[in-house]
Lab assay of single mutants.
Amino acid sequence: TEKQERAIEYIRRLGYSEEEARRILKKANGNPDLAKEIARRIG
């Protein structure tokens, strides 16, 4: 989804690889607090 793409872009800007960014997002899917934090940061 567009939100996922924005989140991946944001995480990659922090210096993670695409693969790492996707792994972090997968974790965020099972972790509402982390997901909220990422969403808050990407606006």
Rank of each mutant, 00 (worst) to 15 (best):
N29W: 07
R13L: 14
Y16F: 15
K36D: 03
G30S: 05
A28M: 03
E2K: 11
R23F: 13
Q4A: 12
A21P: 00
L25F: 06
E9K: 11
E2T: 11
D33A: 10
I11G: 00
E37C: 10
I8F: 06
R12V: 15
E19I: 11
I24D: 00
K27V: 14
K3V: 14
Y10T: 05
K26Q: 12
I24E: 00
P32F: 08
K27W: 15
E5W: 09
K26R: 13
E2F: 06
D33Q: 12
A28G: 03
E18Y: 10
S17T: 14
E9Q: 11
L25S: 01
E18V: 08
E20H: 09
A39D: 02
R6T: 09
K36E: 08
A21D: 00
T1Y: 11
A28L: 03
Y16E: 00
N31I: 06
R23Q: 14
I38A: 04
I38Q: 04
D33V: 09
R22A: 06
R40N: 14
K26N: 10
E20I: 09
L25R: 00
K36R: 10
A21M: 04
A21Q: 01
A35S: 03
E18L: 12
L34Q: 06
L14Q: 04
T1F: 11
K3Q: 15
R41Y: 09
I24C: 05
K36I: 15
I24M: 07
E37G: 05
T1W: 13
L34T: 06
I42W: 13
K27L: 15
K26T: 10
R6C: 06
E9H: 08
E20F: 13
G43I: 15
E19F: 11
I42R: 06
N29G: 14
R6V: 09
L34N: 04
I38N: 04
T1C: 13
A35D: 01
A28H: 02
R12M: 14
Y10P: 01
E5T: 09
R13N: 14
A28K: 01
K26M: 12
K3H: 13
G30I: 02
A21R: 00
N29T: 04
L14T: 02
E2L: 11
I24F: 10
P32S: 08
K27Q: 14
I8P: 01
I24W: 04
G43E: 14
A7D: 03
P32D: 05
I38F: 05
I38H: 04
E37L: 09
T1D: 13
R22H: 11
I24N: 00
T1I: 12
P32Q: 04
N31T: 02
T1L: 12
E9C: 07
I11R: 00
A7V: 11
E19Y: 12
E19N: 10
D33P: 02
R6W: 09
Y16R: 03
R22S: 05
R22Q: 08
E5P: 03
Q4P: 06
K3P: 13
E19G: 10
I8K: 04
A39I: 05
Q4H: 08
R6F: 08
L25Q: 01
R22D: 05
K26L: 12
I38M: 09
R40M: 14
G30R: 03
A21G: 03
L25H: 01
R13T: 14
E2V: 12
A28Q: 02
K26P: 00
E20P: 00
R22K: 09
K27E: 14
S17E: 05
R13S: 15
E5C: 08
E18Q: 08
R23N: 13
I24V: 05
Y16L: 07
G30K: 03
E2N: 11
I42L: 15
L14W: 05
S17R: 05
D33L: 07
L34E: 07
G15H: 03
K26W: 12
A7K: 02
A21F: 01
L14N: 02
A7M: 05
K36V: 15
Y10D: 07
R12E: 06
K36L: 14
G30F: 10
R13W: 13
I8C: 04
G43D: 13
S17V: 03
L34K: 08
E9F: 07
L14S: 02
A39F: 02
Y10I: 06
A35C: 04
G43A: 15
E18S: 07
K36P: 01
R41C: 13
G43M: 15
A35K: 01
K36G: 04
Y16M: 07
I38S: 03
E5V: 10
K36T: 06
A28P: 01
E19W: 12
R41E: 13
R12G: 04
